[in-house]
Design a protein around this nucleic acid. Structure first.
Length: 271
DNA sequence: ATGGTCGGCAACCGA
């Protein structure tokens, strides 16, 4: 069975529910993972997605900040959330697809929203950057993020780190900018390697080519300046590494009316 | 070198 999974930092799911619907209609993924929903669970806009056939929703939201959601055409066998750094921030939700979803082998899908880390890349003076580094360390140590031998698992989300030289518009100019500093890039890669994960996006775009999923709101003309970063990621366990057969970055979503500053990333996986 | 823009929520904080 072919499983199509998308991830998108939506920056308020209530304000942009119509953009989510537009994306679902055009790409028709089986599952969409959202970050920065900024929406308490009891205020989540279920209806517009239900109408399009996305009847299953897993939520971990809060008022005002953060928040993650998974909306799906396929039913879940299980829903889990994990808290990090001893905080109640809503930054993770995971679901398992199994027999009820039509999968012969179960597959677990993690949806993450890693802390952005503030402006100053010094953990001693900037508690937000210290939090980001601690969060990445906890991801590296988490037993739940180390799929067993042969297990099928997917980890997506806004990881707020652009680890490779060509994940940013200018490696040199970004070295002291939070999201591309060496310490956080190393910690992200360490978390990925500790779990044995594969970077699914870079399977389709070589490391020597630019690949972005985010463009700042502050640019006069985001498309002309094209000062992007790859902050959004798709990782798969070794059992799925050779089964990802398509990857799409929906770049045009950055030009839609009242856009998010992130665009959706979609992969198709033969399960 | 600096400041530039969003969204939530009602002052600024977080990004």
């Amino acid at each position: 069975m072919r499983l199509v999974v998308s991830t998108w930092n939506i920056n308020s799911v209530r304000l942009r529910a119509s953009l989510v619907a537009k994306f679902l209609k055009s790409q028709r993924p089986d599952v969409l993972c959202l970050q920065e929903t900024k929406c308490p669970d009891d205020k989540f806009p279920f209806k517009p997605f239900e109408k399009l056939g996305y009847e299953h929703v897993a939520l971990n939201g809060q008022k005002g900040y953060h928040g993650v959601a998974i909306i799906s055409r396929l039913p879940f066998d299980a829903v889990e959330t994990k808290s990090f750094c001893g905080k109640s921030d809503c930054r993770h939700v995971a679901v398992t697809f199994g027999e009820t979803a039509g999968l012969a082998e179960p597959a677990k899908l993690h949806n993450f929203y890693v802390p952005a880390g503030g402006d100053e890349p010094d953990p001693d003076t900037n508690p937000k950057f210290a939090h980001k580094l601690a969060f990445l360390d906890e991801m590296r140590e988490a037993a739940e993020l180390r799929p067993a031998n042969g297990a099928r698992a997917i980890l997506v989300g806004d990881l707020n780190v652009a680890p490779l030289e060509h994940d940013v518009w200018s490696h040199k100019q970004m070295l002291k900018v939070v999201s591309h500093t060496p310490v956080e890039c190393e910690k992200l890669v360490a978390a990925r390697d500790a779990g044995g994960w594969f970077d699914a996006m870079r399977k389709f775009v070589p490391e020597t080519e630019k690949l972005f999923t985010w463009w700042s709101y502050r640019a006069m003309d985001w498309e002309a300046s094209n000062r992007g970063r790859r902050l959004d990621h798709v990782w798969v366990s070794p059992a799925l590494a050779d089964r990802v057969n398509r990857m799409t970055v929906t770049r045009e979503a950055r030009s839609w009316t009242r856009p998010s500053d992130h665009v959706p990333v979609t992969v198709a996986i033969e399960t």
